[in-house]
Nucleic acid binder design. Sequence first.
DNA 1: ACTCCAATCTTGTCGTTAGCAAGATAAATT
DNA 2: AATTTATCTTGCTAACGACAAGATTGGAGT
Lengths: 208, 208
Amino acid sequence: MARAKAEKPYHHGELREALVAAGRKLLEEKGLRGFTLRECARRAQVSHAAPAHHFASIDDLLAEIATRGYHDLTAAMTAEARRSGADAAARLVGQGVGYMAFAAANPVLFQLMFSREANHFETPALAAAAKSAYHLHREAVEAVIPQASGDVKERMVDFAWAAVHGFITLVLEGQLGERDSPRALKSRGLAALSAMVEAVVRAGGGGR
Amino acid sequence: MARAKAEKPYHHGELREALVAAGRKLLEEKGLRGFTLRECARRAQVSHAAPAHHFASIDDLLAEIATRGYHDLTAAMTAEARRSGADAAARLVGQGVGYMAFAAANPVLFQLMFSREANHFETPALAAAAKSAYHLHREAVEAVIPQASGDVKERMVDFAWAAVHGFITLVLEGQLGERDSPRALKSRGLAALSAMVEAVVRAGGGGR
DNA sequence: ACTCCAATCTTGTCGTTAGCAAGATAAATT
DNA sequence: AATTTATCTTGCTAACGACAAGATTGGAGT
């Protein structure tokens, strides 16, 4: 489809980007166990050893893909929160929707991002990207309960994240609502989000 | 250590069991990506092709290991719930503790059990074992809110599971409380459990 | 403009893996 | 006791990740 170069020159020119793009697609197609460096190279139209000049190992490529995944996740959360207006609780729900939507759209990537095995290599860039998403979440929770103590805030950040992450994880792994329609599943997800926000508000002393 | 046979006879005798045991150990040592059928065979003191007579493929062995994992998980949840007395809410917390403790003690196995990729083979035995653990959880939640509508019950089963599963998953993947002491981490986990139970009680109409 | 260097990509190799085939051994059944 | 059957072996193929050594090309410095 996208044939940028006419003849396929000796130097690819943007191999690093091409490998990341091919790798991300391959990841979703074949899963983490089916992911191979050589297949990425084939899809980028280069020899099997070419990737070595851009990624030290297969884990290195996976780390890069995961890092970009965190950037996209942060963007998805931000965008959805923005659409949710000014109310802190509504924004927290929105961010959760963005989180779940990203996971649903990129299930294997999401699995990779949150798999210690796949990202134990601990690239600084990866850690920074993950931290960025975490802070986004943290601030959204704290905005809902600004008057709560630091301790309560911390526990509610944990709790809110756990509820959102746990729900979408269980869905993606086929443990929850596998026979539901997408519509019904979304409804279940929103219910979980609502219960989460309500619990946060209550614990934060925001009961009416 | 455990040298049952003196001479290593041609026929192992209990190779299937030995492979499962070796595989489970290997899994925790090397992770899902480092898991190989041949290493299992080596540890069981047999040739690389011997496992084929007991497991059709590497996925087949993983499925068996995962199935047993679900049995152990169910046992851990049951045992902890039993220790928690008769109160439904306390039992739900206890079951959650059992769930988290099992996951913490068998992190890679837990990851395998809840990884679609690793268990998409859908063995009937695997599905049954997973369903059994699910029902245990479902009943514990419903016992806390016996007077709630079916719809609310369903949503709270989702929510409670998501909160527990999400919390321990994030911890195991190094996303949450990585620099905490085990003691502090356990405290955070208990706080999440408490918040979860309280939310369930409230949603179920059990507010005072 | 020319040269040289460094980056990029190639082919070729090694050790390892999963899965299959064909043969060896021992246990179970008849 | 003989035969069948299950179990385990060695030996292969295709594919993988990683490494080495050589080919090609873009760019920096003169």
